Computed example of a mutant assay.
Amino acid sequence: MNQTFQIPSQSERVAVDMAKMASSIAVQRPYFAFRSLYKVLSEWDIWGDFKPEQPLGSESGPLATAEAGRHLAILGSCAAALSQTEGERVYYLAAQAKWDLQCHSTDFTPRQLMTARAKIVDRSRKMVTAKTELLIEGRLFGTLSVRYQILAEKTFEKLFSSHREPIRSPSVSSPYTRAFPLSVLALSAREITASSIGFSPVLCEGHFPEYPMWPVAVVMYGMSQVTARLLDHRMGRNVFYRVLYAVIEADELVPANKQLVFSARFAFMSADGKLCDVVCSTSYERRVIATTRIELAIE
């Protein structure tokens, strides 16, 4: 049985200024979607509450794994930013993340407020690693370890100056409430390849304002979409699954107006068809920019 944790009460919380924090890590709404950020007297550097918004697709559970990764990775960068000089802006580029599902229950209330916590476990001049946890109804749902590359604002601007765009007026609704379309290029019982269609800066709003890039969590969501399509084709039915474990490596930032190609293939499937490993990659102009290996439980 999963261990239950006490969610900090309002009287235990010391609020963190979300506007200042968002500016410090160069991530704004709607990509930054926490309802509150706070500290409590504990081993964890920072806590936050949010409500999931992304479509589940074929995943079973209270939220999509890619969305869990989005919020937890943001909170990890907030933990890193606590040591920044006030007014300083630093870009935290997620280079590697490891997701581990801790709770297999499906009896959660849908679209409820969820709690995340993060702490820094390793830091150097160029890299920082955060440990994060997602709590739902006091139960530990999953953990995410994230390693970030650290870029000072001037360095980031120099590297990506050619991709700078004016800041857009905030959208009325979040683009993260919708799945983005993919066009299947090739599909067999073993693998699939698909490309993004019409992805644009609007669809990653809030992720590095003025420098709209494909967020790693959105890339992960694209890989999960092709994985779902591959499973349906292989099993000959609509398949629902849970992500037990995933490791994602991200090597390159790509501007949001560029087309990406997503691929997935089976690396293993159990004889009873209940467990499988899927290897995914994302490419831009034939360069692999991200890879992931996912362990799935099929329902």
Results as ranks from 00 to 15, higher is better:
M1V: 09
T4L: 11
T4Y: 02
Q6M: 06
Q6W: 02
I7Y: 01
R13C: 10
M18Q: 14
M18Y: 06
K20C: 12
A22G: 14
S23M: 10
S24H: 02
A26F: 15
A26D: 11
A26K: 12
Q28Y: 11
P30H: 05
F34W: 03
Y38C: 02
K39I: 03
V40I: 15
V40Q: 08
L41P: 00
E43F: 00
E43R: 00
D45I: 01
I46S: 00
G48W: 01
D49T: 15
F50I: 02
Q54Y: 14
P55N: 07
P55W: 04
E59D: 07
P62M: 10
A64H: 13
T65S: 15
T65I: 10
A66W: 09
R70L: 13
H71T: 11
I74F: 03
C78M: 05
C78K: 02
L82G: 05
S83K: 11
Q84C: 06
G87F: 11
R89M: 06
Y91T: 09
Y91D: 03
L93F: 13
A94E: 11
Q96T: 11
K98E: 14
Q102D: 01
Q102G: 03
C103K: 08
S105T: 13
S105M: 08
D107F: 08
D107A: 14
D107S: 13
R111Q: 15
Q112K: 11
M114A: 10
M114D: 05
A116F: 02
R117W: 00
A118R: 00
K119G: 00
D122G: 00
T129G: 00
E133H: 01
E133W: 01
L135T: 00
L135A: 01
I136D: 03
G138E: 09
L140E: 02
F141M: 08
F141P: 00
T143E: 14
L151T: 07
L151R: 11
K158E: 15
S161P: 03
E165T: 14
I167R: 15
R168H: 11
S173P: 00
A179S: 12
S183Q: 10
V184C: 04
A186F: 10
L187P: 08
E191A: 08
A194D: 00
S195E: 10
F199Y: 09
S200Q: 08
L203N: 09
E205F: 05
A217C: 07
A217Y: 01
M220L: 14
M220S: 08
S224I: 13
T227R: 06
L231V: 09
D232V: 04
H233N: 07
R234C: 01
M235Y: 14
N238C: 03
N238F: 06
Y241W: 11
L244I: 13
Y245T: 15
A246T: 15
V247Q: 09
V254L: 04
P255Q: 05
P255E: 04
V261N: 05
R265N: 07
A267P: 06
F268R: 12
D272L: 04
G273A: 02
K274T: 14
K274W: 01
L275W: 10
C276T: 10
C276D: 04
S281Y: 03
T282L: 05
R287K: 13
V288C: 10
A290D: 06
R293M: 08
L296V: 10
L296N: 07
